[in-house]
Write a protein that binds this DNA or RNA. Structure first.
Ligand SMILES: [Zn+2]
Ligand SMILES: [Zn+2]
Ligand SMILES: [Zn+2]
Ligand SMILES: [Zn+2]
Lengths: 159, 159
DNA sequence: CTTGACCTTAGATTTAACTCTAAGGTTTAT
DNA sequence: ATAAACCTTAGAGTTAAATCTAAGGTCAAG
């Protein structure tokens, strides 16, 4: 039997979060004290841990709601249903990774093209790429001199 | 010279989006007609393309605001400033990728442990993993028979 | 002179998961 | 008996980037 603050501390969430989960139908305390304090049982704690594990693998609260209703009525669901949820989440996560990897290589290419030095950004390759397009990036060629120890690796210089 | 609908179509955004960008200080039309219609110049269109390119590499609108103010005042900024923005975005993107990859492997392990068949979820490995922990997943061992052609690869069976 | 496509505004709604506020009641220890 | 630490509620705020709504004005074609 835990009060809200105890359960929150045990599971490393905020009390706000537990009230939020209750408001959204994910987890309700099994009872209340006479004065209205929430009382969670060990069973409630297990349900919370289920929720947190599902969150840890990437499910949203809406999806976790669905998983919880399956969990409470397993015999009326098939492995196909459960695996379907996991697989569709997996596909979604992989699509997001692909999008972010595109960002990553684009940003890396921009970064590589810029010396990153203290000189004026007037001829900065990054800005030039954003002005025209990000596919053909020219490495910048400042007229100034650089401190070789810092900028040589990225910047091709004239003088 | 474009009206809002023309520019929107040309750049494949909604008119709502252009009004939104205006409200948030990213792009204002250079003028208005007597009746109040927005009029965008080619210069405005270029600025929009800058915005869209920056979005395409992952920058938020707030970051794009910053890039735009640098772009309009290049000589008072250094390459270091611009590259700093790119690199910090890159770090952020890479952190997000790492988080999603963790989700990905966790979900993949869950998926692999489940036969995905039409049988009851009562002994589903996925649910069992969420009930206890997601690190030690047991492959499910149903008492039923499976259609080998569909489930053999993931499911280890008894009988 | 009316239809339809276009344009205007301010403000509300959406999504997700909290996070915070205000105003107050309860428990426990000193 | 009073302070500290806890608890209660309803509801507003946060973040990001739109997207939608309502109520109305403009413009070209037929
Ligand atoms: Zn340089
Ligand atoms: Zn540069
Ligand atoms: Zn099986
Ligand atoms: Zn299963």
């Amino acid at each position: 039997m835990y009060r809200i603050g105890e359960l929150a501390k045990q599971c490393e969430v905020k009390t706000d979060t537990l009230r939020f989960y209750e408001k959204h139908g994910l987890l309700s305390p099994s009872s209340r004290t006479d004065s209205g304090y929430r009382i969670y049982t060990e069973n409630d704690a297990e349900r919370l841990r289920f929720i947190l594990r599902a969150k840890a693998v990437g499910f949203t609260l809406a999806e976790i709601s669905e998983l919880l209703s399956i969990e409470l009525d397993k015999s009326n669901w098939a492995c196909a249903d459960v695996k379907g949820m996991v697989d569709s989440k997996l596909a979604h996560v992989e699509a997001k990774i692909a999008e972010l990897k595109f960002f990553q290589v684009s940003l890396q290419r921009l970064s590589n093209a810029c010396c990153g030095g203290p000189e004026s950004a007037e001829h900065c390759s990054i800005l030039e790429a954003l002005e025209t397009n990000t596919d053909n990036i020219k490495c910048e060629n400042h007229d100034h001199h650089h401190d070789d120890s810092q900028y040589t690796k990225n910047c091709q210089r004239k003088g």
